[in-house]
Structure formats: structure tokens, C-alpha cells
């Protein structure tokens, strides 16, 4: 990868990568650090990483870096525990939300971290199941199941919200 190709990658993927990281780590400062770290990693291996595979490399690095960051901050422990009460809490919180988007993102925070990554890669970047599996290190079947579960929960939340309205 040449310098111009690398700079092109910055222009093309940094925004998407930042949104992905921000959705995972929640804090802007952390998301900026994650994005910067990813590009630095790619630059160190710019002889090995081709321009075609740069996007996949960046999102893989971002996924792992964000998980490491969350683990360091002990956030992952809280997120991984899936409880029915979470759904109930969200159901109660729906009253305070303005629109469906906010409801979905509040629900996203309650999902297990792997499901969050899978869902974000699918919806934000439009990756196929096998590509998501490659980025996250999961199997294709796992990706399919995670997406199915996430969609079911979201549909449930939106349904309850509409019934309330």
C-alpha cells in the first residue's frame, strides 16, 4: 500500500470506522483513540495489507481494539449479562425516548458485545455474513443467530413502543 492509497483509506473509511467505534465504546475520546490506533496498525503493516483488503483490516482491528478497551474498563462484564429485566427496563425507558432510533440505540447498549458488533457491521457497513464472521472471528452460523436474536429483540421493543403510542 502506497502513501496515497493509505491517505485514500483515511478519507474513505475513517468516518465509518469512527461511527462503528463510537457505537461500541460510547465515548468520543475513546472512539478517536481506537480509530487512530487502527490506522497506525495498518500503516505499520502497509507493505502487507493491500488497498482492496484495507477496509476489512481496519474494521477487524477496530473490533478487537474496542473489545480490548472495553475489557480494560470492565464494561464488558456488565454488557455480557443478558437479563430479562433489561428488556423491561428499556420498556420503561421507552416513554422518555423521542424516536425509534434512540430506542434502538438504547437497546443496542444492552445487547452482548458480539451481537453489537455483528449488528453494526451488518447495518452500518452492509457486510455479508461471511465477511462479518471473518472480521469478528465468529462462524457464519453464529453471525446468523446473533443477527436473528438482535432483530427479534428490536422488533419486540418497537412493537411495544407502537402499542404504547
Amino acid at each position: 500500500m502506497t502513501i496515497s492509497e493509505y491517505n485514500q483509506c483515511v478519507d474513505l473509511y475513517s468516518d465509518g470506522l469512527y461511527r462503528f467505534a463510537l457505537s461500541l465504546v460510547k465515548l468520543e475520546q475513546d472512539a478517536e483513540d481506537v480509530v487512530q490506533d487502527c490506522f497506525e496498525k495498518m500503516w505499520k503493516k502497509h507493505d502487507e495489507v493491500s488497498f482492496v483488503k484495507a477496509k476489512s483490516y481496519l474494521f477487524t482491528a477496530c473490533h478487537h481494539t474496542a473489545i480490548d478497551l472495553l475489557r480494560r474498563k470492565n464494561k464488558l462484564i456488565q454488557i455480557e449479562i443478558e437479563k430479562e429485566s433489561d428488556i423491561q427496563e428499556n420498556y420503561i425507558q421507552i416513554h422518555g425516548k423521542k424516536n425509534i432510533k434512540e430506542v434502538l440505540f438504547s437497546l443496542l447498549e444492552k445487547l452482548p458485545h458480539a451481537q453489537q458488533s455483528v449488528l453494526l457491521l451488518r447495518d452500518y457497513e452492509g457486510y455479508a455474513y461471511d465477511e462479518i464472521a471473518q472480521i469478528t472471528g465468529l462462524s457464519v452460523e453464529q453471525v446468523r443467530v446473533y443477527i436473528f436474536r438482535a432483530r427479534m429483540k428490536m422488533r419486540e421493543m418497537i412493537g411495544k413502543m407502537e402499542n404504547l403510542i
Binding site: K101, F105, Y124, M154
Partner: peptide, 9 residues
Amino acid sequence: LFKQARLIP
């Protein structure tokens, strides 16, 4: 409902 259950960046 399922169509709405998609995250839009």
C-alpha cells in the same frame, strides 16, 4: 416492524 428494527448510521 422488522424493517424498522435496523440501525441507521
